[in-house]
């Protein structure tokens, strides 16, 4: 109950933050009503999706300081569960998505238990190893379509189908993911102020001190990991319906896991706005670079060179990201 109240309570932010956030929200609701290109629309949907992924990562990676580089596996679990349940058993999205979340959470506990006995680099590498094992399995597993993946054929359904989330026009997808986005933001806001949120921040600071304050560090990490995976899995389920064609390579790859972590870190890990800022910078950059340079000119991967460069710059100059710079300035002005 208190969590619910906390979710809607943004009063600890300075007024300027709330004004900007309100303006962004109005823009997000108003955007589809004005004329726009389909390219802009798909970029906006991608932005909202990646904001959600980064928000999920931010709970464990940002607040908890556990650099997880395997979150794409939960995106994959969410996406595959929805796609398989739809294609094989014609299950509505609103049932398959919670099933996917449940599977992700169960899986997160199975691998989280051993994972969180590790720290630092060892944890990060092990999280990669775990997700690569799952991806390798999906690549040969016939039931899930092996390396070919699964395709949702939209002509089999009659869009707009709100139960199965099959639409012809992107605008429907836009409003569904916008709803997810707002819920995600509220969850993160409640998490930030909850007991678990405080405990995670204490763990990031110093695990020994956290333990001396009665925190079961392993369990707190596992609970947070489950929250992260639930958010990512739900968005992954949406991904399946929106993209309609999923393969292990583009739903579970390491590059995707890194991208998720990067967005949160670029924006400012451990803050509420950070993941959104990160996604707002990187997603359009990625889309426009792709469109501009594209596969057409044979310049594959040039967007990733930019990404890599940005990661290098951020980590060498300001590891707390864009929001970290803002906070630092504010602090200096106050003192």
């Amino acid at each position: 109950m208190e969590d619910l109240k906390n979710a809607f309570d943004f009063s600890d932010f300075p007024r300027i933050d709330l004004i900007v956030a309100g303006a962004v929200l109005i823009f997000l609701f108003g955007f589809p009503l004005f004329p726009h290109s389909s390219f802009a629309m798909s970029t906006m949907i991608q932005f909202l999706m990646f904001s959600l992924y980064a928000m999920g990562w931010n709970t464990i990676g940002g607040f908890g300081g556990q650099v997880d580089l395997g979150q794409a596996q939960y995106l994959g679990i969410g996406a595959y569960t929805t796609a398989i349940m739809l294609v094989r058993w014609d299950t509505p999205f609103w049932i398959s998505m919670p099933v996917g979340i449940l599977m992700s959470v169960i899986w997160s506990f199975i691998i989280g238990y051993p994972l969180f006995r590790l720290k630092g680099h060892y944890f990060a590498i092990a999280s990669i190893a775990a997700s690569l094992v799952l991806k390798d399995i999906f690549e040969v597993w016939e039931f899930v379509g092996a390396a070919r993946g699964i395709e949702i054929l939209s002509m089999k359904y009659s869009p707009p189908d709100f139960m199965r989330l099959i639409f012809k026009e992107d605008i429907y997808y836009y409003f569904v993911i916008l709803l997810f986005f707002i819920i995600g933001l509220l969850i993160l806001n409640a998490f930030r102020k909850s007991r678990l949120g405080f405990q995670l921040r204490s763990i990031r600071d110093n695990e020994d001190v956290a333990r001396s304050l009665g925190i079961n560090v392993q369990w707190a990490k596992m609970k947070t990991y489950a929250i992260a995976t639930a958010m990512i899995s739900a968005t992954g389920a949406f991904h399946a319906c929106y993209i309609k064609n999923i393969e292990p390579e583009d739903t579970m790859s390491l590059d995707l896991s890194i991208l998720i972590a990067l967005m949160a870190m670029l924006g400012g890990s451990g803050s509420l706005w950070g993941p959104i800022i990160g996604a707002a910078v990187l997603v359009p950059l990625k889309s426009y670079l792709k469109a501009l340079l594209g596969a057409a000119s044979g310049m594959v991967g040039i967007d990733l060179i930019f990404y890599g460069g940005i990661i290098m710059l951020i980590s060498a100059i300001e590891p707390k990201g864009i929001w970290g710079i803002v906070e630092k300035r504010r602090r200096r002005r106050r003192n």
């Binding site: 990676g61 650099v67 590059d255 890194i258 870190m265 060179i305 890599g308 990661i311 980590s315 590891p319």
Partner: peptide, 16 residues
Amino acid sequence: VAQLLGTFGLMLVLRN
């Protein structure tokens, strides 16, 4: 975190 992601960035740049 910065050390981890930093060498990751290097990896992306070199690979691409």
